[in-house]
Design a protein around this nucleic acid. Structure first.
Length: 774
DNA sequence: GAGTTTGAAACT
DNA sequence: CAGTTTCAAACTC
């Protein structure tokens, strides 16, 4: 039984479709299959505190990619290929999903070949191991079972919005990308990553041979669809290296009618059936002959969409095509209509349009590749070109909230990624920017919404691609909302882990031009704003990065660690930096600085506040504070600032920021009291305003109804005299009774009030009785 | 708003 | 690893 230990899972981001666990699983020796693996000492990464892409799919970035729509078992196309099957994911995190996950998992297992174990760790990740020797066909074979006899692993990364578990099947041949990275990957052994959902419908598989071809057939609207991408690396010694990307997702398109049921698919096979709570999203896959002028021989465009924030669009472009490979023109416009979000992804090859797949794109045609699941909100679809796992590296940089992916391929093709204009309203993404310069956002609450459009093209391939209408074969990636985006170097970083699922919402990845490794960039919103025009972002290839090239000169002025914008992986925007290099104009310096920072401190960009170990508080400072004078009771202390107590890892002196600290309690009480006062004051003001407003609304109509000015009309000389008489009478009575002056004044004022009420009453009555004359 | 204090990060 | 320097936020007046 291969199970991710709870402890390990506790260290993993709940909301992340954790592929890291996958990598870890792969590292485990075979003998560990019988026993739960020991968690690694350190969490693979700090949990992202923001959104998590619902689904991240990768597309092969090498020579060719094909997309063809097939039935459920179409994915089992070419033999030795790396298959990635991504199932729709939705809300992954959440403690409340455990039950559902378990139930769904059980359902799943019923249709799967003998599964030795089904475990649902705390983070809702489930790894299912098939019993060795079970009569299950090799997953590579077309139409065969997903699980391999050796015991293929299925990882339930989470639950989709509809509650269906997201299964990620790991091939035994899966190798840790970091170690197997390399264009060669001469093993020639297929690597399969299959993410499936227990709920789904017949999949539309897209398979291809060399170029990204696509034929997508919409079996049913709102059906689960699978996109299979096949790619062949140009260099393969042991045989054709084919990377297949199969993405299956039950799309939840609110705008569409909900299907009665959807058949889940595992590698093209229906695993289970269940009735989705919500209608699956539908992504339209439109494929047309590439007509957009592009320099790149082949490219794939992938859009990764944000999780929580509907406004976020992540675009990952990674397809590279070898010049020698047969050109198969494929234009794959993907129209994703998700509420207000429309995502269009195009993939096209330069030549041979005749080979282009014929996928009908309709308004409801949906592209399978995407995912995203915002928590409880309509989300984007994330489409990520997939490379073979070994060629995928994750760069987790700025803050836990941003993850970068580096895809390394040996291809020379360049790719173009384009993102259309988008309107964003959400902000939940802004994850990280603890001190986001341009926005007042604070660490945990980042709600800086940024509208922007990020066209990206590979360096040296700068061509403008005009976003086209979403209608059919639009060849742009459009999102209604876009988030903060970061740009990261495609350098080879040791800490890079293959985890494309951790791509932050709004992440835009694009391949860098040039042969060899491909670079990807994540562009922050500010970055876009710096683009004077719909220009394209030129991405720097990894080759430009030299080892440990600290910025010692001017770049350091603003690219040092002191800049919060930089520390948070953001471009400076509207901040007060002097000689700022943290901008587009100094992209290379910035990238080098990032590299230098990461060389010094691999976790430099990770969030400081992460999860504590099991049994400890959920949140704790990752490094611990080092306060000496503040007693950890001032905002100088990062722990205190984060509203968490100091932990054992803190090196502070005279710490008073612990549970039983009287000083801390006092501060807390004072803070609470202050807050209560503020609330009370606010409430009082609100109430007073309401009363005044109410008084005006009640009295005014009686007095001024009909447009007349009754108060003035009825306060005649006689009325005034009568009122004065009443007041005098009241004064006399007070005097006769020897009332104190204060009491006398009060009685007089009360009498005056009564007089006014009578006047108003008469005025209103007169108005009603004689509306015309009055 | 200016000056001081403070602690993280960079640097040596 | 420890000490020093730099820096910007937090804090005080």
């Amino acid at each position: 039984m291969d199970v991710v230990s709870p402890e390990l899972n506790s260290l993993l981001p709940d909301e992340i479709m954790d592929t890291e666990a996958i990598a870890m699983e792969e590292e485990l020796p075979a003998e560990h299959l019988a026993a739960p693996p020991q968690p690694e000492p350190d969490p693979p990464q700090v949990p992202m505190e923001t959104e998590v892409p619902e689904i991240v799919s990768l597309c092969p970035a090498t020579t060719s990619m094909q997309m063809t729509s097939t039935s459920s078992d179409a994915q089992s196309s070419t033999s030795s290929g790396t298959q990635l099957l991504l199932a729709p994911s939705g809300l992954i995190a959440g403690t409340t999903t455990t039950t559902t996950t378990t139930t769904s998992a059980k359902t799943l297992t019923q249709n799967l070949p003998k599964i030795s174990s089904v475990t649902v760790p705390a983070n809702h990740q489930l790894i299912i191991n098939k019993v060795a020797g079970a009569p299950a066909a090799d997953g590579k074979s077309p139409g065969t079972a997903v699980l391999k006899p050796e015991g293929q692993k299925l990882l339930v990364a989470g639950l989709s919005k509809t509650g269906q578990p997201i299964m990620l099947a790991l091939p035994h041949t899966w190798n840790k990308p970091a170690t197997t990275q390399g264009a060669g990957d001469a093993k020639g052994q297929p690597t399969q990553i299959k993410m499936v959902t227990t709920v789904g419908k017949p999949v539309i598989a897209v398979s291809s041979a060399s170029q990204l071809m696509g034929t997508s057939t919409t079996l049913q609207a709102q059906q689960l669809k699978t996109l299979q991408l096949t790619k062949k690396p140009p260099v393969s010694t042991a045989g054709p290296m084919i990377t297949k990307l199969i993405i299956t997702k039950a799309l939840n398109n609110k705008g569409l009618s909900s299907p009665a049921s959807v058949a889940p698919v595992v590698t093209g096979r229906v695993v289970t059936q269940s009735t989705p709570v919500t209608p699956p999203r539908t992504i339209t896959i439109g494929e047309t002959v590439s007509t957009v002028p592009q320099n790149t021989s082949g490219n794939s465009k992938v859009a990764i969409s944000p999780l929580k924030s509907p406004s976020k669009l992540t675009v990952v472009s990674v397809a590279s095509q070898s010049p020698n490979s047969p050109q198969k023109s494929v234009t794959l416009p993907l129209n994703v209509a998700l509420g207000q979000q429309i995502l269009t992804v195009q993939q096209s090859a330069a030549t041979s349009p005749a080979k282009a797949g014929t996928s009908q794109s309709t308004a409801q045609t949906v592209k399978p590749v995407q995912t995203v699941g915002g928590v409880g909100t309509s989300q984007f679809k994330t489409i990520i070109p997939l490379t073979t796992p070994p060629n995928v590296q994750q760069i987790q940089v700025p803050g836990s909230r941003f993850h970068y992916v580096r895809l390394v391929t040996a291809t020379t093709g360049s790719s173009t990624v384009q993102s259309g204009s988008s309107t964003s309203t959400n902000p939940s993404i802004q994850p990280v920017c603890k001190f986001f310069c341009a926005a007042p956002s604070k660490p945990v609450m980042m709600n800086a919404a940024v509208r922007m459009s990020v066209p990206i093209v590979p360096a040296q391939t700068v061509k403008q691609v005009v976003p086209k209408p979403l209608t059919s074969a639009a060849q742009v990636v459009t999102t209604s909302q876009t988030p903060q985006r970061l740009i990261m170097p495609a350098t080879h970083l040791p800490q890079i882990q293959p985890n494309l699922t951790n791509l932050p919402p709004g992440t835009v990845l694009a391949p860098a031009h040039g042969s060899g490794n491909m670079g990807y960039a994540v562009l922050p919103a500010p970055y876009v704003t710096q683009i004077p025009q719909p220009a394209f972002v030129t991405l720097t290839s990894s080759s430009t990065f030299s080892t440990a090239t600290p910025i010692q000169t001017q770049a350091r002025l603003s690219l040092n660690g002191y800049c919060d914008c930089f520390a948070n992986g953001e471009f400076c925007n509207n901040c007060n930096c002097v000689n700022c290099f943290n901008n587009l104009d100094h992209e290379s310096e910035r990238l080098k600085a990032i590299k230098a920072c990461l060389d010094r401190n691999p976790v430099a960009f990770k969030p400081k506040i992460g999860k504590g170990k099991e049994g400890e508080s959920d949140r704790r400072h990752s490094k611990g504070c080092n306060c000496k004078k503040s007693g950890c009771l001032k905002n100088y202390c990062e722990c205190y600032e984060a509203k968490i107590m100091c932990s054992s890892i803190c090196k502070c002196m005279g710490c008073k920021n612990f549970e039983e600290s009287p000083e801390r309690k006092t501060l807390m009480h004072l803070a609470d009291a202050a807050e209560v006062r503020v609330q009370q004051q606010t409430a009082a003001k609100t109430k007073l305003s309401s009363q005044i407003s109410d008084l005006l609304t009640r009295t005014t109509p009686a007095v001024t109804s009909g447009g007349g000015k009754l108060p003035y009309t009825f306060v005649t000389k006689e009325v005034a005299e009568a009122t004065c008489d009443c007041l005098l009478e009241q004064a006399e009575q007070a005097e006769l009774t020897n009332q104190p002056q204060a009491v006398a004044e009060r009685l007089i004022l009360e009498e005056f009030g009564r007089c006014l009420r009578r006047i108003i009453s008469f005025a209103g009555k007169a108005k009603t009785d004689c509306p015309i004359n009055c």
